[in-house]
């Protein structure tokens, strides 16, 4: 089955390089990536619902990962969306356990190979998280 990813820049975070490069490379890995640009959790979950996303990818370097990241998972689960939620960007190591506890399946730092993100997605899509 074709994997569909909804990719968003979280909130007001301005750096789009990482999100777009990962989107293009996931496309190269054979996935369909809906690029949303900047969005807040409500709109990200709305898009995931409409698109039937298997994966929600969140990118942030702006330091809003703890305030907005868990909100995406919470809203998604409330609406019955079981998509895998993953995050990438500059995120302090100490915060990763907190994000995982909140239902973010994995956090990818600046030097992650996109190939390994794709592998992670393939291994985890379809298994309901959280």
């Amino acid at each position: 089955m074709q994997i569909k990813v909804v990719m968003a820049k979280l909130g007001l975070d301005i750096h789009w390089r990482g999100a777009l490069v990962v989107s293009r490379m996931l496309r190269d890995e054979g996935m369909e990536v809906v690029y949303l640009g900047n969005q807040f959790p409500e709109q990200i979950v709305e898009a995931a619902i409409q698109e039937g996303a298997d994966v929600i990818g969140l990118s942030t370097l702006g330091g809003n990962h703890l305030t907005l990241g868990p909100k995406v998972v919470k809203l998604a689960r409330e609406k019955g969306v079981d998509a895998l939620v993953i995050m990438g960007g500059v995120i302090p190591e100490d915060d990763i356990p907190l994000l995982k506890e909140a239902g973010i399946a994995e956090v990818f730092g600046p030097e992650t190979k996109v190939e390994s993100i794709a592998t992670f997605i393939r291994e985890h899509v379809g298994k309901t998280i959280g």
């Binding site: 996931l26 496309r27 190269d28 369909e32 990536v33 809906v34 949303l36 698109e51």
Partner: peptide, 23 residues
């Protein structure tokens, strides 16, 4: 690659949050 980058939604950001629009 059989993959795709679907970017139209970035140009329709003003429509997000409208309950009567489904994309």
């Amino acid at each position: 690659t059989k993959g795709a980058l679907l970017g139209d939604r970035t140009r329709m950001q003003e429509l997000s949050g409208l309950s009567n629009v489904f994309i």
